[in-house]
Amino acid sequence: MAAESSEGEEEGKLSGGNRLLSVDDDLREMGKNAAWSVSSCKPGNGVSSLRDGNLETYWQSDGAQPHLVNIQFQKKVKLQLVALYLDFKLDESYTPSKISIRASDGFHNLKEIKSVELLKPTGWIYLSLSGTDPRETFVNTFMLQIAVLANHLNGRDTHVRQIKVYGPRPNPIPHQPFQFTSREFITYSSIR
């Protein structure tokens, strides 16, 4: 997971990263259920490069900032975590340094739910979408927008190598089939 830096001016910025994706078993990847779009891209470096599972490919924007990734769902979903793969060592000035995550039921009423500054990230960066209330561990939304507001070294275009969005699993006990607990339901739970 990303670590907080504690060096003077760099305090409060996320740095680090992990080459291997590590997510709790009680979360599932929700991106496959969404329609993805970007504000701009260089030919051959579009949305498909964000979702292909290959850390060597990347989305490259081609226009003015902010650079946007829009993730739209057909129905309201609970989202808990965004994982971004960034690589400052390879991408340098193309690496995002400031990201805003926004949520809503459409483009017309987006509200920022998370803003983060990054310090030379290399690897998976995890951004929790929990609310200000400690009981809110997720965001319930139709749309998520990831906005790259600035890049390292004042770079213009951006590279993001992978994005994954996670929500809670519907089954409260991960990787186990649902089981009835009352005697009445157990009696009628199998076909005879």
Rank of each mutant, 00 (worst) to 15 (best):
M1E: 12
E7A: 09
G8Q: 12
E11Q: 15
G12C: 11
K13L: 13
S15T: 15
G17F: 09
L20N: 14
S22C: 07
S22A: 08
D25P: 00
D26L: 07
R28S: 11
E29R: 10
E29I: 01
E29K: 04
M30H: 04
G31T: 05
G44R: 05
N45C: 13
N45H: 15
G46C: 05
S49P: 00
S49D: 07
R51H: 01
D52P: 05
G53F: 10
E56R: 15
T57Y: 03
Q60K: 14
S61F: 06
S61P: 01
G63V: 09
P66T: 09
L68D: 07
L68Y: 09
N70W: 06
N70S: 14
N70I: 06
I71H: 01
V77T: 06
V82N: 04
A83K: 03
Y85L: 08
L86P: 02
L86M: 15
D87K: 09
F88D: 10
D91H: 01
E92Q: 08
Y94C: 05
Y94S: 00
K98E: 13
I99Q: 04
S100W: 08
S100K: 11
S100A: 10
R102Q: 14
S104N: 14
G106Q: 06
F107H: 10
K120Q: 15
K120V: 04
P121M: 03
P121Q: 01
G123M: 01
L127E: 04
L127D: 05
S128F: 04
L129T: 00
P134Q: 09
F138C: 14
V139D: 00
N140F: 12
T141Q: 11
M143V: 01
I146Q: 05
A147G: 01
N151A: 06
N151D: 07
N151R: 02
L153V: 03
V165R: 08
G167C: 11
P170Y: 07
P172L: 11
I173S: 06
I173L: 12
Q176S: 12
P177M: 10
P177C: 11
Q179E: 12
F180T: 02
F185N: 14
S189E: 12
S189M: 08
S190H: 15
